[in-house]
């Protein structure tokens, strides 16, 4: 019963049934710094992630 989260070169697995916000907290990623994409659609922070879903995170921080 897991959700897979891809971010840059890394892959994380978290328990399903949590919101995106709580899932990100588990893997220590700030929601302010990413956008989450599921099946080509953006995921809101309070959406509950379900078993087997694969979420891709896109960094929104730019600059130098």
């Amino acid at each position: 019963m897991t959700v897979t989260i891809h971010f840059r070169e890394k892959t994380f697995e978290v328990k399903s049934g949590m919101t995106l916000r709580d899932s990100l907290k588990k893997i220590d990623i700030l929601p302010e710094s990413i956008l989450a994409i599921l099946n080509g659609e953006m995921v809101l922070e309070d959406e509950i992630l379900e078993n087997g879903q694969e979420v891709k995170l896109i960094s929104v921080i730019s600059g130098g």
Binding site: E32, S33, L35, I37, M42, V60
Partner: peptide
């Protein structure tokens, strides 16, 4: 605008 808002705008 927050950086996240701009990323969302670009994607949408």
């Amino acid at each position: 605008f927050y950086e996240k808002e701009m990323a969302a705008y670009a994607i949408l």
